[in-house]
Design a protein around this nucleic acid. Sequence first.
DNA 1: GCCAACGTTGGC
DNA 2: GCCAACGTTGGC
Length: 157
Amino acid sequence: MSRKYWLMKSEPGSFSFDDLRASPGATTCWEGVRNYQSRNFMRDDMKKGDRVLFYHSSCEEPGVVGIAEVSRDAYPDPTAWDPKSRYYDPKSSPDVPVWFMVDITCREPFKRAVTLQALKDAPELSAMKVVQKGQRLSVQPVTQEEFDRVCEMGMKG
DNA sequence: GCCAACGTTGGC
DNA sequence: GCCAACGTTGGC
């Protein structure tokens, strides 16, 4: 089974790529996704070893800032059944979990962020969901070609 | 802060 | 099953 490629959004004000690097083992659980399509991608299609473009959203300069890797297959998100969590959702329970998460681990920061504008300016990336208007998925698939191209852009001096 | 686009909810 | 109301996302 071949490796797959993803883009995952995070607001740097709540969890940035630097936060990921500073986490124990440079690893975090991707808690709090409460969208069915994004959940399905994580639960059904993401596998350990898949590569991730880490994207900063809702910030001064939105864009891809580094590479991460899926380090654990999907498992139930326990914040969904914690009434004190901001991600609490009474639809989910330990017996019948509704929401799932994966773990991701930092691989490599980009030398230079690949801004949303730069993504939009690259004709070969025009099919990426992140450049399309009204596309709000926080977890989205990208092709290997798109992944490689974004890495190239982020790694050039 | 604004607002367009989208997803979810709930009345009917 | 329809659809209006509402909440959220996220760029600007």
